[in-house]
Simulated assay, not measured.
Amino acid sequence: MDVAVIGGSVAGLQAALTLGRARRQVVVFDDGRARNRAASHVHNFLGAEQPAPDELLAVGRRQLATYDVAVRDGRVDDVEVVDDGFVAGGEHVRAVVLATGLRDELPDVPGVADRWGQSVVACPHCHGWEVRDQPLVQLGMRGAPERSVARAVLLSRWSDDVTLCTDGDELTAAQRDQLDRAGVAVRTERVEEVRAGSVALTGADLPARRVFVVVRQHQQSDLAERLGCQVTDGAVVTDEGGRTTMPGIYAVGTTASPALLAIGAAGHASTAAVAVHADLLELDLSSRR
């Protein structure tokens, strides 16, 4: 077996597709915990007409059936480094692609987790168009007012009716000026609950067609660190070809670049897969000398 891809969401499946088309033997391990699985639709993905996340991944799996790619359900928590490669999920492989992705830490506000992926979302580029020109609330993450302000300013491009709820955080004069220039209203009261169609503040109820939240992102798996890969600011460090600091180990999608949209994660994975194939080809040819 040539390559083990650990993680079977958009980035992992795209890496496997590119490698399969390069006539590589690939095994994909997927634990079914795609980061966007709570969302009703995948938006802003060229060629895909707003499928549900599981529908998009099902199409991807069907595409892989043409090639020498096996998809196995299950989580891989350990990879053994051996003399001539790696052992992952019981398979001996020459290279490992980490596509384990991220998990989102949501604001600790009642109603947020229950509505996550539906009326509570994070990314305006993914979900803003569908609620353009409607009342929107940007809910900040307590203790991170600079990020909350930046996201509210970004959201103001989709609607003239945006309110930033800081959930108790106070803002500087410069931050308030920035929000005022963007036309964003500010409420600093504590948020009691996110409800269907509104946000309950202390002593007030704020209409909201959609609530956008600031999240903290964490790697879903510590596998990269345990393999000795460098991880900085929550991202696995790679070069432009997805190569980590450990030979034979690659990282793709949001595992390496947390800010990527779904389509960007796929593109990143495809580029890295090309590098994986090139590196394996070089090894193949050097062994024939």
Rank of each mutant, 00 (worst) to 15 (best):
D78C: 11
D78R: 13
D78Y: 12
V79K: 00
V79E: 00
V79R: 03
V82G: 11
D83R: 14
D84N: 15
F86I: 05
F86C: 09
F86W: 08
F86Y: 12
F86G: 01
V87A: 08
V87G: 05
A88V: 13
A88F: 06
G89Y: 02
G90L: 13
G90R: 12
E91G: 06
E91V: 05
H92M: 11
H92F: 05
V93I: 14
R94F: 02
A95M: 06
A95W: 00
V96Y: 08
V96C: 10
V97D: 03
V97M: 12
V97A: 10
L98H: 08
L98T: 05
A99N: 07
T100D: 10
G101M: 01
G101L: 02
G101V: 02
L102S: 04
R103V: 15
R103G: 01
D104C: 11
D104Y: 03
D104G: 10
E105G: 15
E105R: 14
L106S: 11
L106A: 08
P107L: 03
P107F: 08
D108M: 10
V109T: 09
V109A: 14
V109M: 11
P110R: 15
G111S: 09
G111W: 02
V112H: 07
D114W: 05
D114C: 10
D114Q: 14
R115I: 05
R115K: 09
R115F: 08
W116M: 07
W116R: 09
W116D: 04
W116G: 02
W116S: 02
G117L: 10
G117D: 00
G117S: 11
V121K: 08
A122W: 01
A122T: 08
A122M: 13
P124A: 15
P124E: 00
H125W: 12
H125V: 12
C126R: 04
C126F: 07
H127C: 03
H127W: 07
G128S: 05
W129D: 09
E130D: 12
E130Y: 00
Q134Y: 02
Q134L: 13
Q134I: 00
P135K: 00
P135F: 06
L136D: 04
V137N: 04
V137D: 13
Q138P: 02
Q138E: 14
Q138R: 09
L139K: 03
M141L: 15
R142D: 09
R142I: 06
R142G: 09
G143N: 13
G143V: 11
A144W: 08
A144R: 14
A144S: 13
A144T: 12
A144P: 02
A144K: 12
E146N: 09
S148T: 04
S148D: 04
A150G: 06
A150Y: 02
A150L: 15
R151D: 10
R151A: 15
R151Q: 14
A152D: 03
A152R: 03
V153H: 06
V153R: 11
L154N: 05
L155R: 05
L155I: 09
L155T: 05
S156K: 00
R157V: 07
R157Q: 15
W158Q: 04
S159I: 05
S159F: 03
D160S: 14
D160Y: 03
D160A: 14
D160P: 04
D160M: 06
D160G: 13
V162K: 00
V162H: 06
V162M: 06
V162I: 06
T163V: 13
L164Q: 08
C165D: 01
C165F: 07
C165K: 02
C165A: 15
T166A: 11
T166S: 15
D167S: 07
